[in-house]
Simulated assay, not measured.
Amino acid sequence: MSADAESRWPEVARDYVQAIADTKLLLGQRYGEWMLKGPNLEDDISGASNGQDEIGQVRQLFRLLEKQGVDRDWLETDREPAEYANAQPLDEEAEAWPTFMVQVALSDRAAWLLLDAIRHEDFTGMVQKMGEDEYFHLEHHDARLETLAVDQPEAVEAALERYFPGILAFIGPATHGAGADPLVEAGFTDRAVAEIRGAFREHYVDLFAGTDVAVPALTDDVPDPDEWDEKRRRSGDGHIDQRVADQLQGVTNREYVIE
């Protein structure tokens, strides 16, 4: 399916939306992995609900991408691991609860900030509805991180240091500032990446104020703009495991599909 010339987004906008969609797809995967491993039943239920919301949002974003000429079969069932454009922290399954909470909190908030910046008519109403879901996701993350910052500050700070460079790459380079952000110039978004980076970090500085957790600084060379992959919104060639790609594509369940 192809979009006509008048309704077609710029290529950079298609890549931007696919990165948001793929991040939400991997969030659903990571929530599923931790659905029965949280410290209490409330966290398990919350994670299951969050994962369901994310997958519902992925379906809506994939429909928009299909209208823009992106092949639906490729999006859903025919990609190599390196073709997923998810936020880098979601490449791996977290090994401990504090690590998991930082991983999904950073990724979910960054994806929401990028989505909320879109001002294209194709997203009218959709972003507002998704924001209603995201409000509860982000509130839950913040509440858990506040508790963990008191109980396990070293684990939280280590996870922030581990994942912050990758999440800044997902948001985008500092060089995409006012007057230099291609999506703002195209009229697709209303906030430059540099502004989103600042708001993102400031949220966590405020959240962890009064605790022993330090938030990594914003540095203009993270990501290095010369090494940043705009399509996959990351530096380097890392990606999810083949096993995870197979799970996302339902490879092991295809034999049970009724034609």
Rank of each mutant, 00 (worst) to 15 (best):
A3F: 00
D4C: 10
V17E: 01
I20K: 02
L26C: 12
G28L: 04
G28C: 02
G32L: 10
G32T: 06
G32K: 12
M35H: 13
P39L: 00
D43T: 10
D43K: 03
I45E: 15
G47T: 07
N50L: 10
D53C: 08
E54Y: 00
I55D: 03
L61F: 05
L65G: 04
L65D: 09
K67P: 09
D71I: 04
D73A: 09
T77F: 14
A82F: 02
A82D: 12
A82V: 08
Y84E: 07
Y84F: 08
L90K: 06
E92G: 12
A94R: 09
P98H: 01
T99Q: 15
T99G: 15
V102S: 02
S107Y: 05
A111K: 00
L114R: 11
L114T: 09
D122S: 08
F123H: 01
G125F: 02
Y135I: 12
F136N: 11
H137M: 08
L138K: 07
E161N: 15
R162C: 08
F164C: 07
A169T: 01
H176P: 04
A178L: 15
A178I: 14
P182I: 05
L183Q: 06
E185P: 11
E185F: 11
A186H: 06
D190I: 06
G198S: 14
A199I: 11
H203F: 10
H203P: 06
G210V: 04
T211A: 08
D212E: 06
D220A: 15
D220W: 09
D221R: 11
K231L: 13
K231G: 13
R233S: 11
R234A: 06
D241M: 13
L248E: 09
Q249L: 07
E255R: 15
Y256E: 11
Y256V: 12
